[in-house]
Computed example of a mutant assay.
Amino acid sequence: MYTTNENGILNNYATEPKLYFAEYPSPEQQSRYALQGAAAVLLVTSLLMIAFAAS
């Protein structure tokens, strides 16, 4: 999408996507997020323990 002024100069505009509201996650998704969070905490903790043990 663009416009042209009286001097012939173009002004470009980005096309904007359609907006929508996010939906609240289902109980299944919530439990999956909790499991992923626990796995991430376990990974980071184990990496820190290995780093401290190696130093």
Rank of each mutant, 00 (worst) to 15 (best):
Q30D: 09
I50K: 10
L19M: 03
I9K: 14
A38N: 09
L19K: 04
A51K: 05
A39R: 12
K18S: 06
E23T: 11
M49V: 15
T15N: 04
A54G: 03
F21P: 07
E16H: 03
P17D: 01
G37C: 01
L19E: 08
Q29G: 02
N7V: 10
R32K: 11
T3L: 15
Y13H: 15
A40N: 12
K18M: 08
Q29R: 01
S26T: 03
Y2N: 09
A51I: 09
Y33W: 14
N5P: 11
L48V: 12
P17A: 00
P27S: 01
A40F: 14
E28V: 00
A34R: 10
Y2E: 12
E6D: 15
T15P: 02
Y24C: 04
L47C: 09
S31E: 15
M1C: 06
M49Y: 14
K18G: 01
Q29F: 01
N5R: 09
L42Q: 12
K18F: 03
A39E: 14
F52W: 09
G37K: 02
G8Q: 00
A54L: 08
N7S: 14
Y20G: 11
L10D: 05
P25N: 01
Y24V: 10
Q36N: 10
T45R: 04
A54M: 07
I9R: 14
T3P: 08
A54R: 06
A51N: 07
A53R: 13
T4I: 15
R32N: 11
L35T: 09
S46V: 09
A38L: 12
M1H: 04
A14R: 07
E16F: 05
Q29T: 01
F21I: 11
A51H: 04
A38E: 12
S26G: 00
P27Y: 00
A34I: 09
S31H: 08
K18A: 08
V44N: 03
V41K: 14
E23I: 13
Q29A: 01
I9T: 13
S26H: 00
E16T: 07
A39I: 07
S55M: 06
A39N: 08
Y33Q: 10
N12P: 06
M1N: 06
E6F: 06
T15V: 12
G37H: 02
R32W: 08
P17W: 00
P27C: 02
Y20H: 13
T15F: 02
Y2P: 07
Y13E: 15
T15Q: 13
A40M: 06
A34S: 03
E28I: 01
P27K: 00
Q36D: 09
A38F: 10
A54D: 05
E6C: 09
T3Q: 10
Y24G: 03
A54N: 07
P17L: 01
